[in-house]
Nucleic acid binder design. Structure first.
Lengths: 231, 231
DNA sequence: GTCTATAGAGAGATAGAC
DNA sequence: GTCTATCTCTCTATAGAC
């Protein structure tokens, strides 16, 4: 992310840079939470400032406009989003590589649910702020990873799938547990999902997706996954 | 949905009621589109009025507040959302019933993408307006349908799955093509998805999910699904 | 570099003429 | 039942003191 204002720092010392970095971090973290809860339009600079524990004018000092701040939050997220798919390489074992990828995505849904929601909200409403990311970076990456999957299929190492729809499936299912967490919790009758719940759900998601890919189950079926008491 | 204002209609005749019905329909349709594009907070009554071709005050006359209008739009959608899952019944053939359900959901993603987005947006931001729907109606329905799937599994008619995670998977994958349509199109390099594209994608989604359920493929794998020219 | 006070724009809602 | 004009409030953004 690029800051509009240049830090002039009259007596440029390490401490000054440290305060700036810390404030920027606090603002970005608070902004991610507020944008996730209320959406881009519904979020207010006052809410973000409150959550960051800073006066409102400070946000404008560091980030200029609300839209600039929103883009900075998105920028942080995009980097996070691209990385884990690199587990898929031509020479890797398909089951092992897919297991690593899906596990990482589920872990991201648990620990970075707010980031996932900001991203989902942006796409849901047209993705105007990330048009280039989608049609250039992401598209190229998907082309490359679809080729890897096509290679696995051609070598008979997994069932024939349309690689792009298969990737969409992985994204949809794993991100569902972050973006739709409210629905998941209400339907399961849980106030919140524990780390253990997530581990069980991840195991079941792995079984389902690997079976969809014609790959052997990684583990035996469990007695039961997280379900409500009345189930 | 319940209107706040009672139609007094001094000389109550059919035409009067007809105009009201038509106006209400136009407003609801315009509101669904604007809420889908901009979210609840980002939508403005002026935008909705413009799209409906009516003056702003008319919206308040029919629906009271913006929040009332938003709830009316949601109400319409919830009814739509519950119905198709009833394809899953104990005596049905699992592959046939799941095929019908998934096909209907994919068709809804194509023809009612805006409704899907309004629903997704509501859940994404906490689902405060549909809390009872989620924790009562939907939860009960999922309990019932999970029991149906458990029955199929117990009879050895499909692979052992966690029924609730399996249902979440169906929702996540099918609704992805409505909610994340922008990403799908950009990654595939398509300006829009035709009816044929959707038919091919639906076939692939069916193959993936039925295989995940340990059921036979409904059709032979295609030569290729919709992909960009450079793929 | 930080914060208070406020200007200015935009949105929801309504009064009151028709 | 319909629409114009307007009121009021909230939010972004900034000026200017410290």
């Amino acid at each position: 992310m690029t800051l509009k204002t240049d830090p002039v720092s009259p007596d440029a010392t390490a401490p000054q840079g440290r305060i700036r970095r810390e404030n920027v971090e606090r603002i970005l973290k608070a902004a991610e939470a507020v944008f996730a809860e209320a959406g881009c339009a519904g979020a207010t600079m006052a809410d973000i400032a409150d959550k960051a524990g800073l006066p409102k004018a400070n946000l404008h000092y560091y980030f200029g406009t609300k839209e600039d701040l929103y883009r900075a939050v998105l920028d942080n997220i995009l980097r996070l989003w691209l990385a884990p798919i690199n587990a898929l390489t031509p020479d890797a074992d398909p089951a092992t590589a897919l297991t690593a990828y899906i596990t990482t995505k589920m872990e991201a849904s648990r620990t970075r649910a707010l980031a996932s929601k900001v991203f989902a909200n942006e796409i849901l409403h047209g993705g105007a702020q990330i048009e280039r990311f989608l049609s250039e970076d992401l598209r190229r990456l998907v082309d490359a990873k679809a080729a890897v999957i096509d290679g696995w299929v051609a070598e008979g190492r997994m069932a024939p799938v349309d690689a792009r729809q298969f990737l969409f499936m992985i994204w949809a299912v794993t991100q569902h547990y972050a973006d739709f967490d409210v629905q998941v919790r209400k339907v399961l009758g849980r106030r919140s999902l524990t780390r253990q719940d997530f581990a069980q759900i991840t195991a079941e998601v792995l079984r389902l997706i690997l079976r969809a890919a014609g790959l052997p189950d990684p583990a035996p079926p469990p007695s039961s996954s997280p379900t409500p008491a009345n189930a």
